[in-house]
Simulated assay, not measured.
Amino acid sequence: MYRASDEVQNEEWLARLRRAAESLDLSGEARSNATDLFLSHVPEAERSKPAMAAAALYAGALIAGDERSQTRVADAMEVTRLSVQQHWKDILEDAGFSPPTW
């Protein structure tokens, strides 16, 4: 869980997440999921925040059934696909979901 102050401290990243979600035409549910997941997993290091935000966006879309490819999400968030790939499963599991096993 996160605190309200986390939203204020991470407004820049939340704005980037919203812009990326809009460019991917994600549902409101996917956007809300991504925001909650990101704020629940905000890393301390600034350099780690882009990858975590991208992974949260990907995972949030999966939860909502509004799936996009890792590559599209990574491009929208301006990170590498590997950044998304390395973090999304952990985020889902921490939130109580079982990652798909395609």
Rank of each mutant, 00 (worst) to 15 (best):
A21H: 12
N10A: 13
Q9P: 00
R16N: 14
R31K: 15
R47L: 11
G60Y: 06
R19P: 02
S40P: 10
A34C: 12
A30F: 12
F38W: 08
I63C: 12
L26H: 03
E11R: 11
L57N: 03
A20V: 05
E44Y: 15
N10R: 01
F38P: 04
D25F: 10
G60I: 05
M52Q: 08
E12A: 13
A34K: 02
S23A: 15
L17N: 08
L37S: 03
A15C: 10
A56G: 09
A30K: 03
S69G: 11
R72W: 01
R68I: 06
A20G: 08
S32H: 10
W13E: 01
R68M: 08
E11C: 05
T35D: 07
A30L: 05
E29L: 10
R19W: 14
W13N: 02
E12L: 04
E67W: 04
A51W: 07
D25W: 02
E22I: 02
R68W: 02
N10D: 14
E12H: 04
E46Y: 11
A54K: 07
R16E: 06
L17Q: 09
V73L: 12
D25G: 03
D36A: 09
L57H: 01
A21P: 12
P50Y: 11
T71H: 10
A61H: 08
R19A: 15
L14P: 00
A51E: 12
A53L: 11
A45I: 05
A45T: 07
R18I: 08
R16F: 02
A64Q: 07
S23F: 01
A53F: 00
L62F: 00
R19H: 15
R31V: 14
P43K: 14
S40E: 15
R16L: 07
L39M: 13
T71I: 04
E22D: 09
S48H: 14
D36K: 07
L26N: 00
M52Y: 13
A53T: 13
D66H: 08
L37T: 09
R19L: 08
A15Q: 12
A15F: 09
A30S: 07
R16S: 03
R18Y: 11
E11M: 14
A20K: 02
D25T: 00
R72P: 00
E12Q: 03
D66K: 09
L24V: 10
G60M: 05
R18E: 13
T35L: 06
A45D: 15
S40F: 07
N10M: 01
L26F: 02
L26Y: 02
L57K: 03
A59R: 07
A20I: 02
E11S: 12
E44S: 09
A30H: 06
L14K: 08
S27A: 14
T71D: 05
G60T: 01
A51T: 10
A20P: 10
R16H: 06
E12D: 04
T71V: 07
V42G: 04
H41K: 14
I63W: 02
E11V: 06
N33Y: 08
L14R: 01
E46V: 11
A56R: 01
A34H: 08
T71S: 04
A30W: 02
S40R: 15
